[in-house]
Design a protein around this nucleic acid. Structure first.
Length: 572
RNA sequence: CGGGGUGUAGCGCAGUUUGGUAGCGCGUAUGGUUCGGGACCAUAAGGCCGGAAGUUCGAGUCUUCUCACUCCGACCA
Protein backbone atom coordinates (compact mmCIF):
# COMPACT_ATOMS: atom_id res chain seq x y z
CA UNK A 1 0.00 0.00 0.00
CA UNK A 2 1.28 3.45 -0.91
CA UNK A 3 1.02 5.81 2.00
CA UNK A 4 0.53 8.72 -0.38
CA UNK A 5 -2.76 7.17 -1.48
CA UNK A 6 -3.91 5.80 1.87
CA UNK A 7 -7.15 7.27 3.14
CA UNK A 8 -5.87 7.88 6.63
CA UNK A 9 -4.80 11.21 8.05
CA UNK A 10 -2.31 11.42 10.89
CA UNK A 11 -2.42 14.43 13.15
CA UNK A 12 -0.05 15.98 15.64
CA UNK A 13 -2.88 16.82 17.94
CA UNK A 14 -5.46 14.51 19.40
CA UNK A 15 -9.17 15.29 19.39
CA UNK A 16 -9.84 17.57 22.33
CA UNK A 17 -12.18 15.11 23.99
CA UNK A 18 -9.91 12.08 23.81
CA UNK A 19 -8.70 11.28 27.29
CA UNK A 20 -7.24 7.82 27.26
CA UNK A 21 -4.14 6.62 25.48
CA UNK A 22 -5.80 4.15 23.13
CA UNK A 23 -8.34 6.71 21.97
CA UNK A 24 -5.71 9.41 21.49
CA UNK A 25 -3.33 7.17 19.56
CA UNK A 26 -5.93 5.47 17.36
CA UNK A 27 -7.36 8.89 16.50
CA UNK A 28 -3.96 10.51 15.91
CA UNK A 29 -2.80 7.62 13.74
CA UNK A 30 -5.98 8.06 11.70
CA UNK A 31 -7.24 4.54 12.44
CA UNK A 32 -10.70 5.64 13.57
CA UNK A 33 -13.08 8.42 12.70
CA UNK A 34 -16.01 9.20 14.92
CA UNK A 35 -19.36 9.45 13.19
CA UNK A 36 -21.66 9.86 16.18
CA UNK A 37 -21.67 9.20 19.89
CA UNK A 38 -20.19 5.73 20.33
CA UNK A 39 -20.19 5.08 16.58
CA UNK A 40 -16.96 4.97 14.59
CA UNK A 41 -15.72 4.36 11.10
CA UNK A 42 -12.48 2.45 10.78
CA UNK A 43 -9.97 3.34 8.08
CA UNK A 44 -8.04 0.73 6.17
CA UNK A 45 -5.26 0.16 8.71
CA UNK A 46 -7.79 -0.35 11.48
CA UNK A 47 -9.97 -2.59 9.37
CA UNK A 48 -6.96 -4.71 8.43
CA UNK A 49 -6.04 -4.99 12.07
CA UNK A 50 -9.60 -6.04 12.81
CA UNK A 51 -9.43 -8.67 10.07
CA UNK A 52 -6.18 -10.05 11.44
CA UNK A 53 -7.67 -10.39 14.88
CA UNK A 54 -10.74 -12.03 13.37
CA UNK A 55 -8.53 -14.50 11.51
CA UNK A 56 -6.89 -15.58 14.77
CA UNK A 57 -10.28 -15.86 16.45
CA UNK A 58 -11.56 -18.01 13.57
CA UNK A 59 -8.57 -20.32 13.76
CA UNK A 60 -9.08 -20.89 17.47
CA UNK A 61 -12.85 -21.31 17.19
CA UNK A 62 -12.48 -23.71 14.31
CA UNK A 63 -9.99 -25.67 16.39
CA UNK A 64 -12.80 -26.09 18.93
CA UNK A 65 -14.96 -27.57 16.18
CA UNK A 66 -16.85 -24.33 15.81
CA UNK A 67 -18.96 -23.74 12.72
CA UNK A 68 -19.03 -20.19 11.46
CA UNK A 69 -22.54 -19.02 10.71
CA UNK A 70 -24.28 -15.68 10.34
CA UNK A 71 -27.31 -14.53 12.26
CA UNK A 72 -29.42 -11.55 11.26
CA UNK A 73 -28.76 -8.08 12.65
CA UNK A 74 -32.46 -7.25 12.56
CA UNK A 75 -34.83 -9.63 14.29
CA UNK A 76 -38.57 -9.65 14.88
CA UNK A 77 -40.10 -9.03 18.27
CA UNK A 78 -41.66 -12.50 18.34
CA UNK A 79 -38.28 -14.26 18.42
CA UNK A 80 -37.24 -12.31 21.49
CA UNK A 81 -40.56 -12.84 23.17
CA UNK A 82 -39.96 -16.58 23.18
CA UNK A 83 -37.09 -16.08 25.62
CA UNK A 84 -38.79 -13.32 27.56
CA UNK A 85 -36.01 -10.88 26.85
CA UNK A 86 -38.07 -8.55 24.66
CA UNK A 87 -39.56 -7.36 27.94
CA UNK A 88 -36.68 -7.86 30.32
CA UNK A 89 -34.06 -5.89 28.41
CA UNK A 90 -34.29 -2.14 28.71
CA UNK A 91 -33.58 0.72 26.38
CA UNK A 92 -30.10 -0.51 25.47
CA UNK A 93 -31.84 -2.59 22.83
CA UNK A 94 -32.91 -0.55 19.82
CA UNK A 95 -36.48 -1.29 18.76
CA UNK A 96 -38.27 0.03 15.72
CA UNK A 97 -41.09 -0.75 13.33
CA UNK A 98 -40.71 -1.88 9.76
CA UNK A 99 -42.90 -0.56 6.94
CA UNK A 100 -45.72 -2.93 7.76
CA UNK A 101 -45.66 -1.83 11.37
CA UNK A 102 -44.02 -4.99 12.73
CA UNK A 103 -41.96 -4.55 15.87
CA UNK A 104 -38.33 -5.22 15.06
CA UNK A 105 -35.07 -4.91 16.98
CA UNK A 106 -31.34 -4.68 16.44
CA UNK A 107 -29.42 -7.67 17.77
CA UNK A 108 -27.27 -6.93 20.80
CA UNK A 109 -26.57 -10.60 21.43
CA UNK A 110 -27.77 -13.69 19.60
CA UNK A 111 -28.84 -16.46 21.98
CA UNK A 112 -32.35 -16.38 20.53
CA UNK A 113 -31.12 -16.57 16.96
CA UNK A 114 -28.69 -19.36 17.85
CA UNK A 115 -31.39 -21.44 19.54
CA UNK A 116 -33.75 -20.68 16.67
CA UNK A 117 -31.20 -22.05 14.21
CA UNK A 118 -30.26 -25.08 16.29
CA UNK A 119 -33.82 -25.86 17.24
CA UNK A 120 -34.84 -26.26 13.62
CA UNK A 121 -31.88 -28.38 12.67
CA UNK A 122 -30.81 -30.53 15.61
CA UNK A 123 -33.13 -33.35 16.62
CA UNK A 124 -30.88 -35.96 18.21
CA UNK A 125 -28.18 -36.04 20.86
CA UNK A 126 -25.96 -37.72 18.28
CA UNK A 127 -25.58 -34.32 16.64
CA UNK A 128 -24.21 -32.89 19.88
CA UNK A 129 -22.02 -31.37 21.05
CA UNK A 130 -22.18 -28.60 18.51
CA UNK A 131 -20.88 -25.06 18.49
CA UNK A 132 -21.91 -22.29 16.12
CA UNK A 133 -20.35 -18.86 16.03
CA UNK A 134 -20.42 -15.65 14.06
CA UNK A 135 -18.40 -12.47 13.77
CA UNK A 136 -20.78 -9.63 13.22
CA UNK A 137 -21.91 -6.12 14.06
CA UNK A 138 -23.86 -5.64 17.22
CA UNK A 139 -25.66 -2.54 18.37
CA UNK A 140 -26.20 -1.68 22.01
CA UNK A 141 -27.61 1.69 22.82
CA UNK A 142 -25.32 2.29 25.79
CA UNK A 143 -26.36 5.02 28.14
CA UNK A 144 -22.89 6.43 27.98
CA UNK A 145 -20.35 5.57 25.35
CA UNK A 146 -16.81 6.60 26.18
CA UNK A 147 -13.12 6.13 25.68
CA UNK A 148 -12.91 5.79 21.91
CA UNK A 149 -13.26 2.11 21.02
CA UNK A 150 -13.37 1.00 24.66
CA UNK A 151 -17.07 1.45 25.09
CA UNK A 152 -19.08 1.99 21.96
CA UNK A 153 -22.62 1.44 20.79
CA UNK A 154 -21.91 -0.27 17.49
CA UNK A 155 -19.16 -2.87 17.46
CA UNK A 156 -17.94 -6.07 15.90
CA UNK A 157 -18.19 -9.11 18.09
CA UNK A 158 -17.47 -12.78 17.88
CA UNK A 159 -20.23 -14.66 19.64
CA UNK A 160 -20.35 -18.41 19.95
CA UNK A 161 -23.02 -20.79 21.24
CA UNK A 162 -22.52 -24.42 22.16
CA UNK A 163 -25.10 -27.14 22.77
CA UNK A 164 -24.51 -30.21 24.92
CA UNK A 165 -26.21 -33.36 26.14
CA UNK A 166 -24.78 -33.33 29.64
CA UNK A 167 -23.52 -30.81 32.11
CA UNK A 168 -20.20 -32.64 32.22
CA UNK A 169 -19.82 -32.28 28.49
CA UNK A 170 -20.51 -28.54 28.72
CA UNK A 171 -17.98 -28.20 31.53
CA UNK A 172 -15.35 -30.03 29.55
CA UNK A 173 -16.05 -27.90 26.47
CA UNK A 174 -16.07 -24.74 28.56
CA UNK A 175 -12.51 -25.51 29.62
CA UNK A 176 -11.58 -26.04 25.98
CA UNK A 177 -12.96 -22.61 25.04
CA UNK A 178 -11.25 -21.13 28.07
CA UNK A 179 -7.95 -22.39 26.68
CA UNK A 180 -8.81 -21.13 23.19
CA UNK A 181 -9.48 -17.67 24.63
CA UNK A 182 -6.11 -17.63 26.32
CA UNK A 183 -4.55 -18.59 23.00
CA UNK A 184 -6.41 -15.79 21.22
CA UNK A 185 -5.42 -13.06 23.62
CA UNK A 186 -1.83 -14.22 23.71
CA UNK A 187 -1.65 -14.45 19.93
CA UNK A 188 -3.02 -10.95 19.37
CA UNK A 189 -0.29 -9.69 21.67
CA UNK A 190 -2.06 -8.81 24.91
CA UNK A 191 0.11 -9.27 27.99
CA UNK A 192 -1.70 -8.25 31.13
CA UNK A 193 -4.88 -10.22 30.64
CA UNK A 194 -6.44 -12.52 33.18
CA UNK A 195 -9.64 -14.45 33.55
CA UNK A 196 -11.88 -13.75 36.50
CA UNK A 197 -15.03 -15.25 37.92
CA UNK A 198 -17.93 -13.04 37.00
CA UNK A 199 -21.59 -12.36 37.44
CA UNK A 200 -23.76 -13.96 34.80
CA UNK A 201 -26.06 -10.92 34.69
CA UNK A 202 -28.89 -10.79 32.22
CA UNK A 203 -27.53 -13.78 30.35
CA UNK A 204 -28.67 -16.13 33.06
CA UNK A 205 -26.77 -19.28 33.90
CA UNK A 206 -24.35 -20.14 36.65
CA UNK A 207 -20.65 -20.33 35.97
CA UNK A 208 -19.14 -17.44 34.07
CA UNK A 209 -15.71 -15.97 33.49
CA UNK A 210 -14.61 -12.69 32.06
CA UNK A 211 -11.29 -12.08 30.40
CA UNK A 212 -9.91 -8.79 31.56
CA UNK A 213 -7.07 -6.59 30.45
CA UNK A 214 -5.64 -5.04 33.58
CA UNK A 215 -5.33 -1.32 32.98
CA UNK A 216 -5.83 1.92 34.83
CA UNK A 217 -8.57 3.00 32.47
CA UNK A 218 -10.65 -0.14 32.93
CA UNK A 219 -14.23 0.27 34.02
CA UNK A 220 -14.46 -2.94 35.99
CA UNK A 221 -12.95 -3.54 39.39
CA UNK A 222 -11.20 -6.85 39.84
CA UNK A 223 -10.31 -8.44 43.13
CA UNK A 224 -7.04 -10.36 43.10
CA UNK A 225 -5.21 -12.31 45.75
CA UNK A 226 -1.57 -11.43 46.32
CA UNK A 227 -0.69 -15.00 47.24
CA UNK A 228 -2.79 -17.44 45.25
CA UNK A 229 -4.72 -17.61 41.99
CA UNK A 230 -7.97 -16.27 43.38
CA UNK A 231 -9.40 -13.50 41.21
CA UNK A 232 -12.96 -12.33 40.69
CA UNK A 233 -14.95 -9.45 39.38
CA UNK A 234 -15.96 -7.08 42.16
CA UNK A 235 -19.56 -8.00 41.41
CA UNK A 236 -19.07 -11.51 42.75
CA UNK A 237 -15.88 -11.29 44.79
CA UNK A 238 -16.07 -12.31 48.40
CA UNK A 239 -13.36 -11.54 50.89
CA UNK A 240 -12.98 -12.56 54.49
CA UNK A 241 -13.08 -9.67 56.91
CA UNK A 242 -11.70 -9.32 60.40
CA UNK A 243 -14.55 -9.67 62.89
CA UNK A 244 -13.78 -8.06 66.22
CA UNK A 245 -15.90 -9.42 69.08
CA UNK A 246 -17.55 -6.87 71.32
CA UNK A 247 -18.87 -7.56 74.79
CA UNK A 248 -22.48 -8.58 74.99
CA UNK A 249 -24.70 -6.04 76.69
CA UNK A 250 -28.25 -5.18 77.52
CA UNK A 251 -30.23 -3.61 74.72
CA UNK A 252 -30.47 0.10 75.51
CA UNK A 253 -32.14 2.99 73.74
CA UNK A 254 -29.80 5.98 73.52
CA UNK A 255 -30.38 9.53 72.37
CA UNK A 256 -28.23 10.26 69.34
CA UNK A 257 -29.76 13.61 68.49
CA UNK A 258 -29.34 14.68 64.90
CA UNK A 259 -26.44 12.32 64.26
CA UNK A 260 -27.32 10.13 61.32
CA UNK A 261 -24.26 8.85 59.55
CA UNK A 262 -22.17 5.97 60.82
CA UNK A 263 -19.30 8.37 61.34
CA UNK A 264 -21.37 10.75 63.47
CA UNK A 265 -23.05 8.07 65.54
CA UNK A 266 -19.84 6.12 66.12
CA UNK A 267 -18.09 9.29 67.25
CA UNK A 268 -20.89 10.31 69.62
CA UNK A 269 -21.03 6.88 71.24
CA UNK A 270 -17.27 6.43 71.07
CA UNK A 271 -17.36 3.06 69.31
CA UNK A 272 -15.52 1.95 66.15
CA UNK A 273 -17.48 1.79 62.89
CA UNK A 274 -17.10 -2.00 63.06
CA UNK A 275 -19.35 -1.97 66.11
CA UNK A 276 -22.25 -0.45 64.17
CA UNK A 277 -24.66 -1.71 61.55
CA UNK A 278 -25.45 0.34 58.49
CA UNK A 279 -28.81 0.23 56.71
CA UNK A 280 -28.91 0.93 53.00
CA UNK A 281 -32.33 1.48 51.50
CA UNK A 282 -33.36 0.31 48.03
CA UNK A 283 -36.61 -0.32 46.24
CA UNK A 284 -37.51 -3.13 43.90
CA UNK A 285 -37.12 -1.90 40.34
CA UNK A 286 -40.44 -0.70 38.99
CA UNK A 287 -42.08 -0.70 42.41
CA UNK A 288 -40.92 2.06 44.71
CA UNK A 289 -43.47 0.84 47.31
CA UNK A 290 -41.54 -2.37 47.81
CA UNK A 291 -38.71 -1.20 50.00
CA UNK A 292 -35.58 -3.30 50.48
CA UNK A 293 -33.24 -2.64 53.38
CA UNK A 294 -29.78 -4.12 53.32
CA UNK A 295 -27.81 -4.23 56.56
CA UNK A 296 -24.03 -4.36 56.51
CA UNK A 297 -21.47 -3.61 59.16
CA UNK A 298 -20.91 0.13 59.52
CA UNK A 299 -17.49 0.16 57.88
CA UNK A 300 -18.62 -1.79 54.80
CA UNK A 301 -20.54 -0.98 51.63
CA UNK A 302 -23.34 -2.87 49.97
CA UNK A 303 -22.50 -4.64 46.71
CA UNK A 304 -25.64 -4.17 44.64
CA UNK A 305 -24.83 -6.98 42.23
CA UNK A 306 -24.62 -9.46 45.09
CA UNK A 307 -27.77 -8.05 46.68
CA UNK A 308 -29.67 -8.52 43.42
CA UNK A 309 -28.51 -12.10 43.25
CA UNK A 310 -29.69 -12.83 46.80
CA UNK A 311 -33.06 -11.21 46.16
CA UNK A 312 -33.34 -12.58 42.63
CA UNK A 313 -34.78 -9.15 41.93
CA UNK A 314 -33.50 -5.94 40.42
CA UNK A 315 -33.17 -3.08 42.87
CA UNK A 316 -32.83 0.66 42.38
CA UNK A 317 -32.11 3.57 44.68
CA UNK A 318 -34.97 4.35 47.02
CA UNK A 319 -36.53 7.72 46.22
CA UNK A 320 -38.24 8.19 49.58
CA UNK A 321 -41.74 8.47 48.28
CA UNK A 322 -43.56 5.45 49.63
CA UNK A 323 -46.02 4.37 52.27
CA UNK A 324 -43.48 2.32 54.22
CA UNK A 325 -42.24 4.07 57.31
CA UNK A 326 -38.47 4.31 57.32
CA UNK A 327 -36.59 6.78 59.49
CA UNK A 328 -33.55 7.45 57.35
CA UNK A 329 -30.48 7.78 59.52
CA UNK A 330 -32.04 5.81 62.34
CA UNK A 331 -32.96 2.60 60.58
CA UNK A 332 -32.36 -0.56 62.57
CA UNK A 333 -33.29 -4.22 62.40
CA UNK A 334 -35.68 -4.13 65.35
CA UNK A 335 -39.38 -3.48 64.74
CA UNK A 336 -39.08 -2.62 61.09
CA UNK A 337 -42.21 -2.28 59.00
CA UNK A 338 -43.28 -5.83 58.08
CA UNK A 339 -43.73 -5.01 54.40
CA UNK A 340 -40.04 -4.31 54.00
CA UNK A 341 -37.70 -6.92 52.56
CA UNK A 342 -34.66 -7.13 54.82
CA UNK A 343 -31.29 -8.63 53.95
CA UNK A 344 -28.45 -9.04 56.46
CA UNK A 345 -24.82 -9.29 55.47
CA UNK A 346 -22.61 -12.05 56.82
CA UNK A 347 -20.47 -9.40 58.50
CA UNK A 348 -23.23 -9.08 61.11
CA UNK A 349 -23.69 -12.77 61.77
CA UNK A 350 -23.02 -13.62 65.39
CA UNK A 351 -22.14 -10.06 66.39
CA UNK A 352 -23.15 -8.60 69.73
CA UNK A 353 -22.86 -5.33 71.57
CA UNK A 354 -23.64 -3.52 68.34
CA UNK A 355 -25.00 -0.05 67.71
CA UNK A 356 -28.02 -0.06 65.40
CA UNK A 357 -30.77 2.38 64.48
CA UNK A 358 -33.90 2.35 66.61
CA UNK A 359 -36.33 3.22 63.83
CA UNK A 360 -37.14 6.27 65.86
CA UNK A 361 -36.05 9.80 65.04
CA UNK A 362 -33.05 10.74 67.18
CA UNK A 363 -32.42 7.32 68.73
CA UNK A 364 -30.16 4.28 68.31
CA UNK A 365 -29.83 1.06 70.29
CA UNK A 366 -26.63 -0.08 71.88
CA UNK A 367 -25.92 -3.63 72.95
CA UNK A 368 -27.69 -5.15 69.99
CA UNK A 369 -27.11 -8.89 69.66
CA UNK A 370 -28.07 -10.24 66.27
CA UNK A 371 -28.64 -13.78 67.47
CA UNK A 372 -30.63 -12.76 70.51
CA UNK A 373 -32.56 -9.84 69.12
CA UNK A 374 -33.63 -11.01 65.68
CA UNK A 375 -35.18 -14.38 65.41
CA UNK A 376 -34.59 -16.44 62.28
CA UNK A 377 -32.31 -13.90 60.68
CA UNK A 378 -30.63 -15.20 57.56
CA UNK A 379 -27.23 -13.85 56.66
CA UNK A 380 -26.09 -13.48 53.04
CA UNK A 381 -22.91 -12.20 51.46
CA UNK A 382 -23.85 -8.75 50.15
CA UNK A 383 -20.89 -6.60 51.17
CA UNK A 384 -18.43 -5.04 48.79
CA UNK A 385 -14.97 -6.57 48.99
CA UNK A 386 -12.21 -4.16 49.94
CA UNK A 387 -8.50 -4.12 49.34
CA UNK A 388 -6.87 -5.71 52.36
CA UNK A 389 -9.68 -8.18 53.02
CA UNK A 390 -8.51 -11.77 53.16
CA UNK A 391 -8.63 -14.23 50.30
CA UNK A 392 -11.44 -16.79 50.67
CA UNK A 393 -9.15 -19.51 49.29
CA UNK A 394 -5.79 -19.00 50.99
CA UNK A 395 -6.32 -16.17 53.46
CA UNK A 396 -3.81 -13.92 51.73
CA UNK A 397 -4.30 -10.19 51.21
CA UNK A 398 -6.64 -9.11 48.44
CA UNK A 399 -5.94 -6.18 46.17
CA UNK A 400 -8.14 -4.38 43.67
CA UNK A 401 -7.23 -3.45 40.10
CA UNK A 402 -9.14 -1.98 37.18
CA UNK A 403 -9.72 -3.93 34.01
CA UNK A 404 -11.35 -3.78 30.60
CA UNK A 405 -13.50 -6.75 29.72
CA UNK A 406 -12.24 -8.17 26.45
CA UNK A 407 -14.13 -11.44 26.38
CA UNK A 408 -16.41 -13.62 28.39
CA UNK A 409 -17.60 -17.17 28.65
CA UNK A 410 -20.81 -18.44 30.25
CA UNK A 411 -22.24 -21.77 31.17
CA UNK A 412 -25.81 -20.88 30.28
CA UNK A 413 -27.53 -24.13 31.14
CA UNK A 414 -31.00 -24.62 29.76
CA UNK A 415 -32.33 -21.11 30.21
CA UNK A 416 -32.83 -20.55 26.50
CA UNK A 417 -33.47 -24.09 25.32
CA UNK A 418 -36.19 -24.35 27.93
CA UNK A 419 -37.85 -21.00 27.37
CA UNK A 420 -37.68 -21.44 23.63
CA UNK A 421 -38.78 -25.05 23.72
CA UNK A 422 -35.72 -26.62 22.12
CA UNK A 423 -35.78 -30.36 22.71
CA UNK A 424 -33.83 -33.21 21.19
CA UNK A 425 -34.01 -36.93 21.65
CA UNK A 426 -31.57 -38.36 24.17
CA UNK A 427 -29.83 -41.75 24.36
CA UNK A 428 -32.76 -43.06 26.38
CA UNK A 429 -35.25 -42.03 23.71
CA UNK A 430 -36.59 -39.26 25.89
CA UNK A 431 -36.68 -35.60 24.89
CA UNK A 432 -34.47 -33.18 26.78
CA UNK A 433 -33.37 -29.53 26.66
CA UNK A 434 -29.77 -29.27 25.48
CA UNK A 435 -27.39 -27.48 27.82
CA UNK A 436 -25.80 -24.36 26.40
CA UNK A 437 -22.70 -22.29 26.75
CA UNK A 438 -21.98 -18.95 25.15
CA UNK A 439 -18.73 -17.16 24.49
CA UNK A 440 -18.05 -13.60 23.33
CA UNK A 441 -15.10 -11.46 22.26
CA UNK A 442 -15.33 -7.80 21.27
CA UNK A 443 -13.04 -7.23 18.29
CA UNK A 444 -13.02 -3.42 18.48
CA UNK A 445 -12.32 -3.57 22.15
CA UNK A 446 -9.42 -5.89 21.45
CA UNK A 447 -8.00 -3.26 19.08
CA UNK A 448 -8.40 -0.60 21.76
CA UNK A 449 -6.84 -2.91 24.33
CA UNK A 450 -3.78 -3.52 22.18
CA UNK A 451 -3.42 0.23 21.62
CA UNK A 452 -3.90 0.87 25.30
CA UNK A 453 -1.33 -1.64 26.38
CA UNK A 454 1.27 -1.42 23.66
CA UNK A 455 2.55 2.06 22.90
CA UNK A 456 5.25 4.59 23.75
CA UNK A 457 5.57 8.36 23.61
CA UNK A 458 5.87 8.22 19.83
CA UNK A 459 2.81 6.15 19.07
CA UNK A 460 1.42 2.68 18.67
CA UNK A 461 3.54 -0.46 18.87
CA UNK A 462 1.57 -3.12 17.03
CA UNK A 463 2.24 -6.82 17.52
CA UNK A 464 3.28 -8.40 14.23
CA UNK A 465 0.38 -10.83 14.44
CA UNK A 466 -2.22 -8.07 14.13
CA UNK A 467 -0.39 -5.15 12.49
CA UNK A 468 -2.08 -4.05 9.25
CA UNK A 469 1.29 -4.21 7.52
CA UNK A 470 4.35 -6.04 8.72
CA UNK A 471 6.81 -3.66 7.11
CA UNK A 472 6.80 0.12 6.78
CA UNK A 473 9.25 1.43 4.18
CA UNK A 474 10.46 5.00 4.51
CA UNK A 475 12.24 6.26 1.44
CA UNK A 476 14.29 9.37 2.08
CA UNK A 477 14.89 11.60 -0.93
CA UNK A 478 12.09 10.25 -3.04
CA UNK A 479 13.18 12.91 -5.55
CA UNK A 480 16.42 11.04 -6.17
CA UNK A 481 15.64 8.75 -9.08
CA UNK A 482 18.06 5.99 -8.11
CA UNK A 483 16.81 5.90 -4.53
CA UNK A 484 13.19 6.01 -5.63
CA UNK A 485 13.56 3.16 -8.08
CA UNK A 486 15.50 1.01 -5.61
CA UNK A 487 12.91 1.64 -2.93
CA UNK A 488 10.09 0.89 -5.29
CA UNK A 489 11.76 -2.32 -6.40
CA UNK A 490 12.19 -3.42 -2.79
CA UNK A 491 8.54 -2.65 -2.11
CA UNK A 492 7.41 -4.75 -5.06
CA UNK A 493 9.74 -7.60 -4.17
CA UNK A 494 8.57 -7.74 -0.59
CA UNK A 495 4.94 -7.79 -1.69
CA UNK A 496 5.57 -10.53 -4.24
CA UNK A 497 7.13 -12.50 -1.39
CA UNK A 498 3.86 -12.35 0.46
CA UNK A 499 4.91 -9.65 2.90
CA UNK A 500 2.47 -6.85 3.69
CA UNK A 501 4.12 -3.51 3.15
CA UNK A 502 3.16 0.06 3.75
CA UNK A 503 5.37 2.18 1.50
CA UNK A 504 5.84 5.83 2.46
CA UNK A 505 6.47 7.16 -1.03
CA UNK A 506 5.81 10.79 -0.21
CA UNK A 507 8.36 13.37 -1.12
CA UNK A 508 8.82 14.91 2.28
CA UNK A 509 11.33 15.23 5.09
CA UNK A 510 12.72 12.34 7.07
CA UNK A 511 11.28 13.61 10.33
CA UNK A 512 7.76 13.50 9.00
CA UNK A 513 8.21 9.96 7.74
CA UNK A 514 9.79 8.68 10.94
CA UNK A 515 7.16 10.28 13.10
CA UNK A 516 4.34 8.86 11.04
CA UNK A 517 5.96 5.42 11.05
CA UNK A 518 6.34 5.52 14.82
CA UNK A 519 2.79 6.77 15.28
CA UNK A 520 1.23 4.07 13.12
CA UNK A 521 3.27 1.40 14.82
CA UNK A 522 4.18 -1.17 12.17
CA UNK A 523 6.61 -3.68 13.68
CA UNK A 524 9.41 -3.36 11.12
CA UNK A 525 10.64 -0.12 9.61
CA UNK A 526 12.89 -0.14 6.58
CA UNK A 527 14.77 3.03 5.67
CA UNK A 528 16.24 3.40 2.25
CA UNK A 529 18.12 6.57 1.46
CA UNK A 530 21.05 7.99 -0.54
CA UNK A 531 23.16 7.55 2.57
CA UNK A 532 22.28 3.91 3.08
CA UNK A 533 22.67 3.16 -0.60
CA UNK A 534 26.22 4.52 -0.60
CA UNK A 535 27.16 1.20 0.96
CA UNK A 536 24.42 -0.55 -0.94
CA UNK A 537 22.52 -1.02 2.30
CA UNK A 538 19.09 -0.50 3.81
CA UNK A 539 18.39 0.10 7.47
CA UNK A 540 15.98 -2.07 9.43
CA UNK A 541 14.49 -0.95 12.74
CA UNK A 542 12.28 -2.93 15.08
CA UNK A 543 9.55 -0.66 16.37
CA UNK A 544 9.17 -2.36 19.70
CA UNK A 545 12.80 -2.55 20.78
CA UNK A 546 14.12 0.41 18.73
CA UNK A 547 16.86 -2.04 17.73
CA UNK A 548 18.37 -1.00 14.40
CA UNK A 549 20.78 -2.62 11.93
CA UNK A 550 21.93 -2.36 8.34
CA UNK A 551 21.77 -5.09 5.74
CA UNK A 552 22.87 -5.30 2.13
CA UNK A 553 20.17 -4.28 -0.30
CA UNK A 554 20.21 -7.71 -1.98
CA UNK A 555 19.81 -9.46 1.36
CA UNK A 556 16.98 -7.25 2.54
CA UNK A 557 14.16 -9.57 1.58
CA UNK A 558 15.65 -12.60 3.30
CA UNK A 559 16.63 -10.60 6.36
CA UNK A 560 13.11 -9.20 6.64
CA UNK A 561 11.56 -12.62 6.17
CA UNK A 562 13.72 -14.00 8.95
CA UNK A 563 12.94 -11.08 11.18
CA UNK A 564 9.21 -11.56 10.67
CA UNK A 565 9.51 -15.22 11.60
CA UNK A 566 11.51 -14.28 14.66
CA UNK A 567 9.01 -11.64 15.76
CA UNK A 568 6.08 -13.99 15.22
CA UNK A 569 7.70 -16.57 17.51
CA UNK A 570 6.89 -14.46 20.50
CA UNK A 571 3.13 -14.75 19.97
CA UNK A 572 2.98 -18.49 19.33
C1' C B 1 -31.89 10.00 33.43
C1' G B 2 -29.17 13.90 36.85
C1' G B 3 -25.10 17.63 37.10
C1' G B 4 -21.16 20.44 34.43
C1' G B 5 -18.68 21.87 29.68
C1' U B 6 -18.13 22.81 24.42
C1' G B 7 -19.97 23.84 19.25
C1' U B 8 -15.90 29.43 14.88
C1' A B 9 -11.65 26.54 8.01
C1' G B 10 -9.79 19.39 7.33
C1' C B 11 -7.46 19.23 12.79
C1' G B 12 -6.30 22.04 17.47
C1' C B 13 -7.93 26.72 19.26
C1' A B 14 -8.50 32.52 20.14
C1' G B 15 -12.25 36.16 19.48
C1' U B 16 -18.12 36.45 23.04
C1' U B 17 -17.05 40.15 29.16
C1' U B 18 -17.94 45.88 26.41
C1' G B 19 -22.37 44.17 19.34
C1' G B 20 -19.16 47.53 14.30
C1' U B 21 -15.31 44.26 7.59
C1' A B 22 -13.62 36.51 10.41
C1' G B 23 -8.44 35.42 13.28
C1' C B 24 -3.95 32.22 14.91
C1' G B 25 -1.12 27.48 14.68
C1' C B 26 -1.00 22.89 12.07
C1' G B 27 -2.58 20.78 7.53
C1' U B 28 -3.77 21.62 1.96
C1' A B 29 -2.28 23.82 -3.21
C1' U B 30 1.59 26.34 -6.38
C1' G B 31 6.76 28.05 -7.02
C1' G B 32 11.62 28.16 -4.91
C1' U B 33 15.64 26.83 -1.32
C1' U B 34 16.39 22.68 1.87
C1' C B 35 15.87 17.62 3.64
C1' G B 36 18.34 11.18 8.34
C1' G B 37 13.75 12.96 13.57
C1' G B 38 7.50 17.07 12.45
C1' A B 39 12.68 22.77 7.80
C1' C B 40 12.37 27.83 5.47
C1' C B 41 10.62 31.85 2.04
C1' A B 42 6.74 33.62 -1.14
C1' U B 43 1.80 33.18 -2.96
C1' A B 44 -3.08 31.03 -2.68
C1' A B 45 -7.49 28.27 -1.64
C1' G B 46 -10.63 27.12 2.23
C1' G B 47 -16.14 29.79 7.02
C1' C B 48 -24.12 31.02 6.42
C1' C B 49 -19.17 31.26 13.69
C1' G B 50 -24.20 23.92 15.14
C1' G B 51 -29.61 25.25 13.86
C1' A B 52 -34.20 28.33 14.48
C1' A B 53 -36.61 32.56 16.18
C1' G B 54 -35.97 37.34 18.42
C1' U B 55 -33.60 42.34 20.02
C1' U B 56 -30.79 45.98 16.99
C1' C B 57 -29.19 50.52 11.84
C1' G B 58 -25.90 46.32 12.59
C1' A B 59 -25.23 39.74 16.01
C1' G B 60 -19.73 34.90 16.14
C1' U B 61 -20.77 38.27 20.39
C1' C B 62 -27.16 39.87 23.61
C1' U B 63 -32.25 36.93 24.59
C1' U B 64 -35.30 32.48 24.03
C1' C B 65 -35.78 27.74 22.07
C1' U B 66 -33.51 23.56 19.89
C1' C B 67 -29.82 19.99 18.16
C1' A B 68 -25.14 17.72 18.55
C1' C B 69 -20.79 16.40 20.95
C1' U B 70 -18.35 15.74 25.60
C1' C B 71 -16.89 15.05 30.97
C1' C B 72 -18.63 13.24 35.94
C1' G B 73 -22.43 10.20 37.98
C1' A B 74 -26.70 6.61 37.48
C1' C B 75 -27.17 2.43 34.13
C1' C B 76 -24.71 -1.73 31.53
C1' A B 77 -25.08 -9.02 27.57
Amino acid sequence: MLLSKLCCERTKEAPGDAKIKSHILLARAGFIKQVANGIYSMTMPCQRMSQRIQKIIREEMDACDGQEVLFPVVMPRELWETSGRYQSIGSEMVRFKDRSNHDMLLGMTHEEAAVHMANHIVSSYTQLPMMIYQIQTKFRDEARARGGLIRVREFTMKDAYSFHTTKEDLEQYYMQIHKAYQNIFRRIGLKRFIDVKSDSGMMGGSVAHEFMLLTEVGEDSIVLCNHCDYRANMEVASGIIEKPIYADAELALVDTGTDKTIEEVAKRLNVPATQTAKAVVFAVKGDQDQVVIAFVRGDLEVNEAKLKKVLKKDVVAYDGGTSASVVCGNIGPKDLDKSIIVVYDKSLEGTKGMVVGANKEGYHYTGFNFERDIKDAKFDDIAKTRAGDKCPICGGDLRIENGIEIGNIFQLGTKYTQSMGMQVTGPDGQLFNPIMGCYGIGVGRAIASIAQESNDDNGLILPITVAPWQVHICVLRQDDEVVASKANALYKDLESNGIDVLFDDRNCGAGIKFNDADLMGMPIRVVISPKSLQNDEVEITIRKTKESFKVKYEDAINEIKNLITKLEEEYK
